[in-house]
Design a protein around this nucleic acid. Structure first.
Lengths: 341, 341
DNA sequence: CTGAAAGCGCTTACAG
DNA sequence: CTGAAAGCGCTTACAG
């Protein structure tokens, strides 16, 4: 037998029709147990695998999900935000559990991705990851929704949002950071991150921290907020900008760990002691947070659960079942950047 | 028009036959320029995309490559070796440039992956990444080769190896490390990493360093070599083991940055000064190397070029063109772990 | 340069 | 429980 075996080859060898082979292989209950066993044995022996293209074409579905990871056009070409790495691992494992294949693509936010994957029947649904300007993004989500393409995204969970989002409880996370800093007696909390509706996750973190301070009779000071995107270089620049303002502050809440790590480097260069002069809290708990000096106190997001939920919800959407947006709990992880040894 | 548009829909609207539409869309030179334009305009307007399942089925190829990333069963479930992250980015971008889709899967080394992807026509070829016991792995490579499945792998480039490998010049990299340490006056160089044929990359790094020392009239001492896999915890354990041997050493060459970072943590806990008491050199230049304290001197592998080559070679194999294994140059990156401020 | 015909390997009514 | 028939949406000889 030359070339790959087909279901017809198996049918001949088993002395049944080709549709019976197809049924047996997919575990249809309408096939005799003995026949099934014979067919499975032959399939095994020929190392037969169902041709995905044929079965997908006929069944009009793909068994494949596509993961689209957006990068800000400004970011370095070769780097992916490390926050997404464990999520990627969790997503691939969840896909395997659900019997789905995973197509992956890294895209510029500006590209015309929204049509391609679903329209060309490469994937049944889309998982959307990436930091970036939310307002630029929202329009594309609406378009996907209008087209009827199933999708889920990771990001802020907002009211009246197109489609389905999974994100962490950013407000709660910001609150944890604020309460922790208050417990250390800090009151002048600077915020490094773009706290606007362009970056709703950052904005929610800011607001959560602010809420904690307000309950203690104080508040965040907008004069101590500096825009930054999630990258070390951006954190460095923001820290420089903050210092140059010459305003007093005794704590920094960074919108992400990368920002915090960049900022800590600048503070160290300027002779500021961490945490004595400035306590620093990040967000995400990426692996580098533990390695940084001092080790970074941060708000952990549960990326494993995030990946699992993204896949689970998308599979539900693809199957036509109901699914709703969801917020994940956050966890304060205290390290040396806020607590002296 | 309900449902997705098909090439037949376009044919009707354009007043041509369906095959002509297919030809026009794929840029066949045998179609009238004016006809083509009319067809393209209609396709654009209907937001038409070729059904991949149908075209793949007919053309008997997939336009898809599969990336299989192996993890050692011992490693933490949720973590991917950070060394592979930028390579992943480079691979996805290279795939996009070549017009290929990328399926991704994380596998246990033990799984029976070798059959699935190619046999079920999900992918035309495989990219194999992962650290792990090479000897356990080699048999599977031979099997793939025998099946005629196109594949490329990242790893040590060895003689008489099944299939095609892309790897860095580990011997040269080890030599760079050895020469650098010699230039600092260090002679007692410990090696943390499994330097055996189970981990040929590590072994080559060891041998390169040894070669450099021998040229200077000394050599590596096997009594200063401790097995370790590429993980921080493994580096910590190896450093502990090294210290407990009570032998003098003034430098450590770690087989990977993760090992080096774990080891540096242990050295610091034991009051050893880096680089004064122990100079430390890693391998890979992962992002954490720059963040570590002290920042880690290391041998950089060009992951961008690696990803591009992997895709390029695999595409050649799939197309039936010739392609050969290749070694990439390495680069010494000097940081504070070997050079005091 | 274009069309009529066949067929890739499956799944799914339909009939028995 | 099983088979004969149709068809998913393309691409590819073949004929003109």
């Amino acid at each position: 037998m030359r070339g790959k075996a087909t279901s017809l080859d198996i049918a001949h060898l088993a002395g049944v029709s080709q549709p019976t082979v197809s049924r047996a292989l997919r575990g249809s209950p309408m096939v005799n147990e003995e026949t099934r066993k014979r067919i499975l044995a032959i399939a095994e022996q020929l190392n037969y695998k169902v041709d995905k293209n044929a079965s997908n074409l006929r069944a009009q579905q793909t068994g494949t999900l596509a993961l689209l990871l957006f990068e800000d056009p400004t970011t370095d070409e070769s780097h992916i935000n490390p926050f997404f790495l464990p999520m990627l691992g969790s997503i691939t494992r969840a896909c395997a559990r659900h019997g789905k294949d995973l197509l992956i693509s890294f895209q510029q936010l500006s590209n015309d991705w929204h049509a391609d994957y679903a329209d060309s029947h490469k994937a049944d649904g889309l998982i959307l990851l990436g930091y970036g300007d939310y307002l630029a993004y929202e329009g594309k989500l609406s378009k996907l929704l209008a087209q009827g393409t199933p999708f889920v995204r990771w990001g802020a969970v907002l009211p009246d949002q197109p489609g389905l989002s999974i994100g962490c409880d950013n407000v709660g996370g910001g609150r944890l950071a604020g309460e922790h800093l208050l417990s250390l007696g800090r009151r002048r909390v600077a915020f490094l991150g773009d706290a606007s509706s362009h970056y709703p996750e950052f904005l929610e973190r800011y607001e959560g921290c602010d809420a904690a301070l307000r309950e203690a009779g104080t508040a965040m000071d907008r004069a101590l907020q500096v825009d930054a995107e999630s990258a070390e270089e951006s954190g460095e620049a923001a820290a420089q900008a903050l210092l140059s303002r010459g305003l007093p502050f005794d704590a920094v809440f960074a919108a992400s760990d990368l920002i915090a790590i960049g900022a800590m480097r600048v503070f160290a260069e300027h002779g500021l002691r961490i945490p004595d002069d400035v306590a620093v809290v990040g967000f995400d708990d990426i692996p580098a947070a533990r390695i940084a000096t001092p080790a970074l106190t941060t708000i952990r997001q549960d990326t494993t659960q995030a990946g699992e939920l993204l896949v689970e919800k998308l599979v539900a959407l693809v199957d036509g079942d109901a699914a709703a947006s969801e917020r994940l709990r956050t966890l304060l992880v205290v390290r040396r950047s806020t607590s002296a040894g």
